[in-house]
Amino acid sequence: MSEFGLGRMTFGSLFKKPETLLYPLETKPAPEGLKGHIVIKVDDCILCGICERTCPCSAIKVSKPDRTWEINRFQCVQCGSCVRACPKKCLSMDPSYTSPSAQIYTDSFSIPEKEKPAKAEPNSLASETTLFAHQSPCQTAGRFPHEFIDESRRSR
């Protein structure tokens, strides 16, 4: 009686919890790791621009002079490349979707100036010259410090 084979399952469905949700009254809990939207920890960002160069759809714009980090969420495809590429691990994927909007907009974050570290120990390279006072001697904001090239005490 395969003609009625599906009947049992269909009839049984009448006594089961519905498979569907009464959205928007009911919503599904977002699983951990859902690709919702990108969030940034502004305090950790060093404006290196790696995320901008990694993004396949040019959704991120980093401006060092203005100290801003912008994302066009309508262009972002939630691939997570920027999260994996960020050297400071300041980007993450939040498991919630942004609310719908009738207008295309860009989310802009201003990146605060970094606090200068307290004065270093005497006799250290940094303490003797003001050149590297705000950074470690070999790195300045993720880029090679060109000022360091001509430094007389550099080992050659």
């Binding site: 699983p31 790791g33 859902l34 690709k35 495809v77 939630q78 691939c79 997570g80 994927m93």
Partner: peptide, 12 residues
């Protein structure tokens, strides 16, 4: 898919 990759159709 949603639980293991974070996406339902495009898994990336």
């Amino acid at each position: 898919f949603e639980k293991t990759t974070g996406g339902r159709v495009i898994l990336s």
